[in-house]
């Protein structure tokens, strides 16, 4: 008998809605995540994309990589655009112009488009309770414009606007916790995922789409170009992010936390060392990250109902 995870992959939709031929870099785990999300949502979907890597690599006129309707209206407003699409479809259904076929509206953006410039529009759309799924593809910096820091860049990472130098050792702030912020909007579904765990990702996106109301999925999207790793290591690094507890996988259904991966954590060093963006870290800084990771993970376990 073959292992379940190999068998399960055969059940995944073979159809592609984010097709080959896009212009993403080699080894881009964000493009992989987009492809998996599109598979999970299927053909009855409209995508509202923020400006960013995934917009420019998939949309160069007169081509499109998308097999579903797709709309891009600038950088800071994917959630507002998704709101407008949702309202438009509701108006069309009410008018009897289209049947009520429960089209999934997907808003998507990178970490900058979500945690920084698009934060207000996202908060507004979550608060208004639109029936849509928002996916943040988090590659932890402004990769499309050339690896500038965002509020989602982790502590210690060297980027082109938080370069490691003689005085400052890279990014000095901690990663903004977008999933917790989404949970604070009291929406029915929030989850974190990573393309290194494709079955988990697909399942979560399917759940998100099935919910009535807003759902938020935060996907760690390994970027070999920006993280300074070999292109063939993207999936491996994604797994290490989860196994070290740096990026925990969990879901929050109607406010209830549940860890998707809960086992003894590997040392963060194993995750940090292979990446060029962390190559300058001292043992002391790695220790700081280790302590913070342990403490954050413990808080998450308590939220998920673990005994202290």
């Amino acid at each position: 008998m073959e292992p379940l995870n190999i068998y399960a992959s055969r059940l995944v939709n073979k159809q592609e809605y984010f097709t080959p031929g896009h212009k993403a870099c080699q080894g881009c785990a964000e493009a992989l995540a987009v492809r998996l999300v599109a598979k999970a949502l299927g053909p009855n979907t409209v995508v509202a994309s923020a400006t960013g890597c995934m917009e420019v690599v998939s949309s160069a006129y007169p081509h499109t990589s998308w097999g579903v309707p797709w709309i891009h209206v600038a950088f800071e407003n994917a959630a507002a655009v998704a709101s407008g699409v949702e309202a438009g479809f509701k108006a069309l259904v009410r008018k009897g112009k289209i049947p009520d076929q429960k089209t999934t509206i997907l808003g998507m953006g990178g970490d900058g488009a979500t945690a920084d410039i698009g934060f207000q529009a996202l908060s507004g759309a979550l608060e208004r309770g639109h029936d849509f799924v928002y996916v943040c593809y988090d590659n932890e910096a402004y990769m499309n414009t050339g690896i500038q820091r965002s509020s989602s860049t982790p502590y210690g990472a060297s980027t082109t606007t938080s370069p490691a130098g003689k005085v400052k050792p890279g990014q000095l702030t901690w990663k903004k916790n977008m999933a917790a912020i989404a949970v604070a909007h009291e929406i029915p579904y929030v989850a974190t995922a990573c393309a290194s765990y494709p079955m988990d990702l697909i399942e979560k996106v399917e759940k998100a789409a099935a919910m009535e109301g807003p759902a938020y999925v935060h996907i760690l999207s390994v970027c070999p170009t920006g993280w300074r790793i070999p292109t063939k290591k993207a999936i491996w690094i994604g797994r290490l992010a989860v196994e070290t507890g740096v990026f925990p996988l969990f879901e929050v259904v109607n406010g209830r936390y549940k860890l998707s991966f809960d086992q003894e954590l590997r040392p963060v060093k194993e995750y940090l060392k292979p990446q060029g963006r962390f190559r300058h870290l001292t043992d002391e800084m790695i220790d700081t990250i280790q302590k913070r990771t342990n403490s954050d993970f413990e808080k998450l376990r308590i939220k998920a109902g673990a005994k202290t």
Binding site: I71, V73, A80, V81, A82, G84, F89, A91, K97, A121
Partner: peptide, 18 residues
């Protein structure tokens, strides 16, 4: 909506739904 920017963005989107 939560801003004029989002007002025009969502109107652009709904107009694109026809």
């Amino acid at each position: 909506v939560e801003s004029e920017h989002s007002a025009m963005a969502s109107v652009i989107a709904s107009e694109t739904t026809g």
